[in-house]
Design a protein around this nucleic acid. Structure first.
Lengths: 198, 198
DNA sequence: TCTATCATGTAACCAGTTACATGATTTT
DNA sequence: AAAATCATGTAACTGGTTACATGATAGA
């Protein structure tokens, strides 16, 4: 019942699927396994997510320990229902592309506001950043492979790079088209006259 | 000052940049110009966004009309500060790729949960959806071009298609690698035995 | 005209973020 | 042992979503 499992929820279930643990340990592993590269998790949100999952019966507290004078720690375990939900949600995510709203798409849709020369310049700068990211990812992949990780463990990095490469290609081609005058436009009214930062 | 302009905020400013209007008219135009394909806007959120922009001084009420016995309508106009903010934010969005968290990336990172055969099957199904989307976009682009739109007006569709194509290619290649045994793995513990829906 | 549907706005809710609080650990 | 930093949890806030409410319009 209730709302569909969020990505963070799925991540938590995935951890508890291996063994029960308390929220702080989840946080550790999320960092250690770099899960935070594919799911956004900002310190506080984890506790929220856990609470919600518990309310929905997808996980349940199994033990509460206390060391020293620190607040209690509740250890949670995944429930049978939780496993089912995680499995089926994962399959959905793989099977159906869903509508997302990448920022760059929206920014592009407003490209016509800017004078073409400036647009080309901004795109060139973006290209530089994209190249850097790509290089960084490539070395990460190389290193992890040397450590003997299986390909399936790295597949999301591979995909991310594929995406980056495709974006880079597009951005370069577009900037070229603008610079060679194969594509132009007249920006409307006041898209700014007195701005010329380097 | 205060928090950075959200995509929806930028969209509202872009509309008010042309002429003052009331929230409901914004909603109309957002549909008419298909802005809702690049920014997620769910009925209620628009009013919220407008309120916030007003509080931040990026827009201001200029008139309030009333027709029949309906609630008042407030017409808003963009302020000078609003223009500056919109301009600078747009430039940022173009220039710096920012961290996003596409769902498919996360789903891929859990691919190892599933038995390889099932993974390949799901990827194949995804490919079908991607092809359909691509075809739909292609006809939209063709039609809009026939209506004489400039290329700059369609550029975000072009990009979206580039992304779709790249994802499709990746998904196909990956599924092939799995089906030909060029890539395998053993799924862990209980990734489900008694589930075999078609 | 009664009913069903659409137009338009408000308000309660929800997921996620940031700021804070407290206890533990390290540094000097 | 005082000061600075890190570990760990809570709570207030924020942006967005969904459910609801009221008025208008069109179809039976």
């Amino acid at each position: 019942m209730s709302r569909p499992l969020t990505p963070l929820g799925l991540a938590v279930l995935s951890l508890l699927g291996k063994e029960p643990m308390h929220p702080y340990e989840m946080q550790q592993r999320i960092r250690d396994y770099s899960i935070d590269h594919v799911v956004k998790v900002a310190h506080g949100s984890l506790y929220h997510a856990v609470e919600r999952l518990a309310r929905q019966g997808l996980i349940e507290p199994v033990e509460t320990t206390r060391e020293g004078r620190r607040p209690e720690r509740t250890v949670y375990a995944i429930t049978e229902q939780g496993r089912d939900e995680a499995d089926s949600r994962l399959r959905e995510f793989l099977r159906y592309p869903l509508e997302e709203y990448p920022i760059f798409d929206m920014a592009l849709s407003f490209l016509g506001w800017l004078p073409p020369e400036e647009a080309a310049q901004l795109l060139d700068r973006r290209a530089v950043r994209l190249e850097a990211k790509l290089a960084a990812h490539d070395t990460v992949i190389a290193n992890l492979m040397k450590q003997g990780l299986e390909r399936v463990q790295l597949i999301e990095l591979e995909f991310c790079n594929a995406r980056l490469r495709s974006e880079l290609e597009f951005v370069r081609a577009l900037s070229d088209d603008i610079k060679n005058g194969r594509m132009t436009w007249r920006p409307p009214g006041r898209t700014n006259g007195e701005n010329n930062d380097t």
